[in-house]
Computed example of a mutant assay.
Amino acid sequence: MSMRCAMAYEVVALEDFHRVFGSTTELSSVSIGGQVVNVSDEFFAEAYQLLLVEPPASLAKQYGPNGELYSGWETRRHNPTYDWCTIRLGTTGTITGFDIDTTHFNGNEAPEASVDVAYEFPSDWKEVFPKVRLGPSRRHLYKIPATGRTTYVRLRIYPDGGIARFRVYGHVVPVFPVNPAEPFDLAHIFSGGEVVATSDDHFGSSSNLLLPGRGIDMGDGWETKRSHAEDHQDWVTIKLGAPGYLITAIIDTIHFKGNFPESCDIRGICSREQEPDVNNGGWKMILSPVKLGPHLMHFFQLNSPCDQYTHVKVSIYPDGGIKRVRIIGTLAAKPDPDAKETIAQEDRERHDIIVEEGWEILEGIEDADYVRI
């Protein structure tokens, strides 16, 4: 059953993408675990391609057993009703917009599309984006009023045809430990961490720093352009998912073998601003400059574990690339007003490091703050 209702939406010009969606997360991306769970038809091109990170490439005049190849989802002709594709978002979130991209589909693009959402699956669907006309070989950006908590999205195309990419933008519903004393990664995208400012994203987006896992190559990390200026530095500001007491930083340079930064440092601040001024005098050094190595996971104990922080600024010298930044700490706010007391300083300093599945920690390395994977 589908609950249909009139919904307001705004068409967004491509040049306004960063203004409208710059502070959002692509909730549907495979890079955070988005996946197609079922689809009505994918005769000409498979639906999983809707969620790929890379832009659609032209496969003109390349043919497979069912016809010409396309980077996207394409159904067979002459559907009397509509085709549909159900997607499980990488994490539960609130949705604020869509990118329905028909690039390279020209004459075989889906003429119209609409979007339904659900929190659980299977479930009653709620239409949040009404049927709209699409054009050939172009991106269609739409902003909608923020939805409630959503985990599943259903894209419907009328009556059939092709879509190259379908990107769902919004905000992560953070996941925190039940026990406020349990250390976790406050910068992780699933904890609500966000990159709010950066000096340079020339070769790789700084938002990649907060993604799950360790990625597959240099393309899914953060890399700045080369600089030969004296005393140059690049930096990224990360808003933590919640105010916290910070214990450990993990700087991962996996896949960066000849272009890793020479060194880095980390500063922290407690601020009510979304994007604190990087020149604000309130930033406190919580990791003094330290050397970095190639293709390594580095673990550093942070200073001032009893101070509360909302943002961290990671600076690299003079330039280069890193894959992931993890900021391990505990929640600063008590979820229960009747909680007995805050965590003692010595307890905060002794918490074990929690890392993701697949990370290997090697013991017994002397005079080093990192391990080789």
Score class of each variant (00 low, 15 high):
Y152R: 04
A187G: 15
F260S: 06
A187Q: 03
F190A: 10
D265R: 13
G215R: 07
R165G: 07
D160V: 04
Y152G: 05
G162P: 04
H255R: 12
D234P: 01
R165K: 10
A146V: 04
T147L: 10
Y245C: 12
I238H: 00
T151S: 15
G268S: 11
E194H: 11
G135P: 04
A181G: 06
P183W: 07
F129D: 03
I163S: 05
T224K: 03
P130M: 10
G268C: 02
A181F: 12
H140K: 09
E230L: 10
Y142D: 06
P261G: 06
L155P: 01
F166V: 06
K225S: 14
W235V: 01
W235E: 02
Y245F: 15
V153I: 12
G268I: 02
R267T: 14
I247G: 09
E194L: 14
F190R: 14
F203L: 11
P177G: 10
P136V: 07
A187W: 03
P136A: 15
D231S: 12
D160M: 05
T151E: 13
A164L: 08
I216A: 08
L155S: 03
G244I: 09
G170L: 05
D252R: 12
P243L: 07
I266K: 02
Y245N: 15
D265I: 00
I254M: 06
N179G: 05
L211Y: 13
D234H: 09
A242M: 12
R139W: 00
P136H: 13
D220A: 01
A164V: 09
E194K: 15
T150N: 07
P136Q: 09
D200I: 05
R154W: 01
K257E: 13
I189C: 09
S191A: 15
N259W: 09
S207K: 15
R226S: 12
P136C: 14
L211P: 02
G204I: 11
F129T: 06
H171A: 01
H171Q: 11
T151Q: 14
L141G: 01
L240K: 04
I157Q: 04
R156C: 10
G258P: 01
V175P: 00
G221D: 06
W235G: 00
P145D: 09
N259Y: 10
D252N: 15
V178R: 12
A187K: 02
F176P: 01
V153S: 06
F203I: 04
K225G: 11
E262P: 00
